[in-house]
Amino acid sequence: MKRSAVTQRCMWPNWSKRPVVIAFCLQVVLSGCTGSGSRIQRQSIAVVNNEALTLEVFSKRLADKLKVYDAAGAKSSQNIERAKSEIIADFLQSTLIKQWAKEKGLGPTKEEVDAEAALVRKQYPDDLTFRESLSSQGVTFSEWNASLEPIITQRKLFEWIRKQITQPTDEEMLSYFKANQKDYSRKEQIKISQIVVSKQEKATQVLELLKKGKDFSEVAKDFSESEERTQGGLVGWVQRGDFQAFDEAFSKRPGQFTGVIESPFGYHIIQVLERRSSGELKFVEVKDTIHARIIADREQAFYSKWLNDQIKDAHFSKNAELLKSLRVETVLN
């Protein structure tokens, strides 16, 4: 029985208990096939309205999805079948969105793709670092650039959907609030500022300054090592259970501060600014949240119906026999 190696991606297993890290390659192979490799790779795994997902592209995506597993996990039939199903579903959805956008004249323009690319590349210090990042992921610049188009297209679809959504009335929001009132209660809350340092000795020195009457916000600006230092240590409102170090401040009254509290992030000194008691929230306090929740639910429902309608009208097929014949092998380097 012959087999053709369709694609090969190098991986590193997560065998943390082993003293030696062993590199392996993930290889997607096709059993029982004959013919030239290029002809085999051009075979269609799935087709949506005459747009095909080739075996070559599918195999690359399958290898990429299985990268997250170690050698044993990458060969698990359950993981492989799940990955196959996800790839087919993603292809169906993204292709229908692209075809719909093209029909509506909403496809991404070159200017939009260039602008999106510029936003991403600004996150890197220079072009060399950016391209090295792509190379480390096994992605070419042209592949990465092409991947921006479906992102822009999907964004345009969602913008179009938002325009179709009816805004909820006050009566609808109030009705939603009454039906879900148990979800709109507030735990006890405190508004706090904090000073965080990395050394216990420094924290003790800071605490002594506060005990001598130094202004908390000024001390935070001078000594704190956390990002809130520029706002005088202001964290804002927190509720009991958010973070263990903050919980210790709930015994303090407004204006008081804690002693030194150790956490995985360093040594904290926390000042309480205001308090809110626990209890049920009023409609006016959560009206904006409810508005956003209803809009999100309506957008999701609209999108689900839209996608189902697109699928019903589409000509979709997949090559089950070809899918079944794909196997994954791991080869130690």
Rank of each mutant, 00 (worst) to 15 (best):
T153R: 15
R61M: 03
T129I: 12
L326F: 05
A83I: 05
T129C: 01
S263K: 14
S36F: 13
K122I: 01
Y267F: 15
K191T: 02
S59E: 04
A52I: 04
Q8P: 08
D183W: 09
A146H: 09
A23H: 13
F283Y: 14
A118I: 06
I290L: 09
R253T: 10
L281W: 04
V47Q: 14
L322M: 06
Q271M: 10
P150G: 10
K182Y: 01
L174T: 02
N180Y: 03
V219W: 05
G236P: 07
V206Q: 02
S59C: 11
P254W: 02
W15M: 03
L96Q: 05
V206D: 00
I40V: 11
N180I: 08
G279P: 03
L96V: 04
E143C: 02
I290E: 04
P108Y: 04
Q256V: 06
S198K: 15
V29A: 10
F24P: 00
Q27I: 08
K156R: 14
V113L: 09
I88R: 12
D64F: 08
K287A: 13
Q300R: 15
E321Y: 00
R82M: 11
E188D: 12
D222P: 00
L207H: 12
Q194T: 05
E208N: 09
K60N: 03
D64A: 07
E201F: 00
S31G: 11
E103D: 08
K318L: 04
Y303D: 10
K75Y: 01
T34H: 14
D127A: 14
Q181V: 08
A5F: 15
R293N: 12
I195F: 06
E248G: 02
T7E: 06
W15G: 01
W237F: 09
A118S: 14
D222R: 11
S85P: 03
V139L: 04
R186M: 08
Q300K: 15
S263M: 10
I152F: 10
R276N: 09
K156F: 14
E159H: 15
V206H: 05
R39K: 12
L26A: 06
A23L: 15
C25V: 11
A5Y: 15
H268V: 11
R39W: 05
V219C: 09
N49G: 03
S198H: 13
Q164Y: 12
E172T: 08
Q137V: 05
K252A: 09
P19R: 09
N14V: 03
K202E: 12
E86T: 09
F250N: 07
I80Y: 01
E274W: 06
F130E: 10
V197A: 01
P168M: 07
I192H: 03
I192R: 03
L281T: 02
S251I: 07
L55F: 02
V57N: 12
W12K: 09
G107W: 07
E280K: 13
E262M: 11
R18P: 01
R298S: 12
A115G: 04
E274K: 13
G35I: 02
E149A: 14
T330G: 03
F216K: 08
D309G: 07
R275Q: 11
C33R: 09
S278P: 02
R9N: 01
K156V: 14
S133A: 10
V139K: 02
